[in-house]
Write a protein that binds this DNA or RNA. Structure first.
Length: 812
RNA sequence: GCCCGGGUGGCGAAAUCGGCAGACGCAACGGACUUAAAAUCCGUAGCCUCGCAAGGGGCGUGCGGGUUCAAUUCCCGCCCCGGGCACCA
């Protein structure tokens, strides 16, 4: 058969049409096959897929296709993280309702998804802005409310003036809004809804051990740091004329060295009891904190005029306010031990407050403790009454026990993680399903009245409070309890709620009576492989873990953790910076597909670098893999029915073929270095070109089929076309992954480098399987080796079978 | 400041367990085909150096040391780049 020209447009269009009904990728509901759930993070429907998305999906899709071919029942779904601020901004700009804008974007992006032939089961598509989905957000919220896991409090919250809404702590980056770099977040006191993530702080931390080795270590480290468990003690100091002031410390063993107490500027006692000057100062510090945000801030403080008594020593010490003490951590008050804490040292030095060492090094004296810096190590406690002479660890225990006995303190654990603030003063999100009644207070919307629907007709001005406040039909309701007129809650939920459980919904996407049927979850969960960007290491992945634990405790799943294995792929870089709309260096997926085809775009996304590494997008690089696909296409089409050569190259070619197959199979099973998998196939094709005329018809057939099958997870269109060209029936994805033949893969001869004193001098070819002695004999028997060592005395011979031989010699 | 990654040709990278550094690809150069170009096919190529040539020698994985017959790989000390955390008491 004459060689054909590789026309990617024709081929991709043809198979795109045939695959339209999607029946190929349906996950089976009652299957005897082993299951495999592979998931890529769902995108925000911004309007267009770019090449960063393509990389993410190409990794997942190659894996999904491989697992199909390995005989697994694969669940590979896709959906849309469809709530969020951009839709509202677009609505303001274009006078287009957010829903309309969002759904149009989804249609557009879905077309691109299909164009790239990602093997999704679209019957399971989830769109989080649709009532069928978000009603279950509301349902979950009510379950959490019943269990005290959702609650409302007035709190200082992070407010982004540009978003005109509250942000979660996780959404504040360097004191600025995560979406508006350089816009400092302000602190405002508002009534807000929170989810009690702190109730699961210990569980979230402990269960990280279940993820060890299966999630990237740095993600686990980031989560551990974020949770920030810290063991210490709470202790009361007695404030003259007031009563106890509680502090949290990890170093209660240094308490005899406490020379003052420092309160956060927001601390209640500052407001109620401090001197007027101190109150004014504190106010300034609070305001400054709201605007300065970034970086290191000079420590600042002010004496409140109050004094407090140390219950251990009976000593009376001054009480200060300090800008570096955080209201949101511990109790909002600390005891300052300048001799043993760097920050306290800095503060007390600045204001001339006493520095008194009470810890000495285990092998030193108290007098050796330097007074020009803080000595923060553990050691032996001194000048501390009955505790003097104890090691730090013992003192920590005994002092906490003493405080507890005397009822002025206890051993305590504090977490850095806070409860998750989920209120947003926005329109385009899940309405929080509660009603505020003058008489009954906060009343949950009854389950049978769910979903609380977002009103469709709405003017979004971007000014003032939540847009829902302006919709009387939405706001004005009757209280479900007493029937009197009441007001609906107008805050909506953080969109991270949507993505915290969407992967469960994929298992039962059309359920109208429950978020899903637990039996289906039991079959599919946990997710075997989750693939996404490392930027979600904390936010999304910690919320998802939290949600699963809550669901487990409600009895909705038996999983402790939703995700068994996590893979974080690298970013796609262009011109030295991360691809983003604002930089204007985005490469649209459709543009690449137009020019070189979806297959080439997918192939290059995987070929350019190992998947976990950042990759530079180079247009010329796509041309390289495009050429490769053309080479494959032409080679296969012209050899399909060729009479074949004399077979003199069969052995070498089949060895290369099976070695390649082995490597690619191993890469799928462990390393995922698809860049080398693809390079291996390129090498194979180079060999095929070189030996083309010396390959027999039978060996050629084997090469063509196996090459096509191996390449198919990466380039589904062209391989499908070739599969048909070869006269085969059916879809490539339904074929079995070829088994490599270890006998054929084995080499008979191996080239051994010969070193003299560690320097490469020549090479010899020997049969495989020679032991040390035989290898040395073979080397000595070689004429050029004999010449090389003849002028010196061989002192030692290092022979490593199938690797190398090294003669250590001394000149004569 | 602390905690992770990373640093290899002109470029993206490879070397899986301490054993031939630079596979594969891009860009480049030379040749074939072509009226010509594109496409395609074949070939050259780390750097320096000696030689008319065949061929030879030296250097080389951020820098400096160490272990070893042998180090991109292991150990110690630095430098640079990227990311995360950053008053968390």
């Amino acid at each position: 058969m004459p060689e054909k020209t590789y026309d990617h447009n024709e081929i991709e269009l043809k198979w795109h049409e045939r695959w339209k009904d999607d029946s190929l990728y349906k996950a089976e509901e009652n299957s005897t096959k082993p299951k495999y759930y592979v998931l890529e993070m769902l995108p925000y429907p911004s309007g267009a897929l770019h090449i960063g998305h393509i990389r993410n999906y190409s990794i997942g899709d190659a894996l999904a296709r491989y697992m199909w071919m390995r005989g697994y029942n694969v669940l590979h779904p896709m959906g849309w993280d469809a709530f969020g601020l951009p839709a509202e901004n677009a609505a303001m700009k274009n006078q287009r309702p957010p829903r309309e804008w969002t759904l149009a974007n989804i249609e557009k992006m879905k077309r691109t998804h299909r164009r790239f032939a990602f093997s999704y089961d679209w019957d399971r598509e989830v769109t989080t802005c649709e009532p069928e989905y978000y009603r279950w957000n509301q349902w979950f919220f009510l379950r959490m409310l019943e269990r005290g896991l959702a609650y409302r409090k007035k709190a200082l919250v992070n407010w982004c003036p540009l978003c005109a809404t509250v942000l979660a702590n996780e959404q504040v980056v360097d004191g600025c809004c995560w979406r508006h770099e350089g816009t400092p977040v302000e602190q405002r006191a508002l009534e807000q809804w929170f989810l009690r993530t702190t109730a699961y702080a210990d569980a979230l931390l402990n269960d990280i051990s279940q993820l060890e080795g299966k999630w990237p270590e740095r993600v686990l480290t980031m989560q551990r740091n974020w949770i920030g468990r810290s063991e210490g003690a709470e202790v009361d100091f007695t404030l003259d004329g007031y009563g106890p002031v509680r502090v949290f410390t990890t170093r209660i063993d240094t308490i005899y060295g406490a020379t003052c107490l420092i309160l956060a500027p927001e601390h209640e006692i500052v407001r109620t009891m401090a001197s007027p000057e101190a109150q004014a100062h504190a106010k300034k510090m609070i305001d400054a904190r709201a605007t300065q945000g970034l970086g290191d801030v000079e420590k600042e403080g002010c004496d409140t005029g109050l004094t407090a008594i140390n219950r251990f020593s009976g000593e009376r010490i001054p009480v200060w306010v300090g800008n570096f003490v955080l209201m949101g951590y511990g109790t909002g008050a600390i005891m300052a031990v300048p001799a043993h804490d760097e920050r306290d040292f800095e503060f007390c030095t600045k204001y001339g407050i006493n520095i008194r060492p009470v810890i000495r090094p285990v092998d030193g004296a108290l007098a050796d403790v330097p007074l020009n810096e803080a000595f923060g190590n553990y050691g032996v406690v001194e000048n501390s009454g009955q505790y003097s002479g104890m090691p730090s660890a013992q003192a920590r225990k005994e002092m906490a026990a003493h405080a507890e006995r005397e009822d002025f303190g206890k051993a305590a654990v504090t977490f850095r993680i806070k409860d998750w603030g989920v209120s947003r003063q926005r329109y385009w999100g899940t309405p929080i399903p509660v009603i505020h009644c003058e008489k009954c207070g906060v009343v949950p919307v009854p389950d049978d009245q769910l979903p609380v629907l977002l009103p469709q007709q709405i003017q979004i001005t971007g000014k003032g409070r939540s847009p829902l406040d302006e919709v009387p039909e939405f706001v004005n309701v009757n209280c479900p309890q007493c029937g009197e007129p009441a007001r609906r809650e107008t805050d909506t939920m953080d969109t991270f709620v949507d993505s915290s459980w969407y992967f469960y919904r994929y298992c039962d996407p059309k359920n109208t009576t429950a978020p899903y049927d637990s039996k289906k979850i039991d079959y599919w969960f946990p997710i075997d492989q989750y693939i996404g960007g490392v930027e979600h290491a904390i936010l999304h992945l910690i919320y998802s873990r939290f949600w699963t634990k809550v669901m487990r405790d409600i009895g909705l799943t038996t999983c402790d953790e939703p995700v068994r294995k996590l893979f974080t792929q690298g970013m796609v870089i262009r011109n030295g910076t991360k691809m983003s709309k604002s930089v204007g260096n985005v490469v649209a997926a459709d543009d690449v597909a137009d020019k070189h085809g979806a297959d080439s775009a997918r192939l290059f996304a995987l070929f350019a670098a190992p998947p976990e590494k950042d990759v530079d997008w180079i247009d010329a690089g796509v041309e390289g893999v495009y050429r490769f696909l053309g080479r494959v296409f032409r080679f296969v089409t012209r050899n399909v029915d060729a009479p074949g050569g004399d077979g003199s190259a069969d052995k070498d070619v089949l060895r290369k073929l099976h070695q390649t197959l082995q490597r690619i199979t191993e890469d799928f099973d462990s390393r995922w270095h698809f860049n080398t998998s693809i390079a291996q196939m390129m090498e194979l094709v180079n060999v095929l070109y070189a030996e083309e005329s010396r390959i027999s018809a039978a060996a050629m057939r084997q090469c063509l089929e196996i090459l096509t099958l191996m390449l198919s997870p990466f380039a589904p269109y062209v391989t499908q076309e070739l599969w048909q060209e070869m006269g085969n029936e059916g879809a490539v994805i339904k074929q079995s992954w070829p088994a490599f033949n270890a006998d054929l893969a084995r080499a008979t001869d191996v080239e051994i480098p010969v070193q003299i004193n560690g320097k490469l001098r020549t090479r010899i070819t020997v049969p495989v399987g020679l032991d040390k002695a035989a290898l040395e004999a073979a080397a000595r028997a070689d004429q050029s080796v004999a010449t090389l060592i003849s002028t010196a005395t061989v002192v030692k011979v290092i022979a490593v079978p199938e690797k190398l031989i090294n003669f250590v010699v001394r000149p004569n």
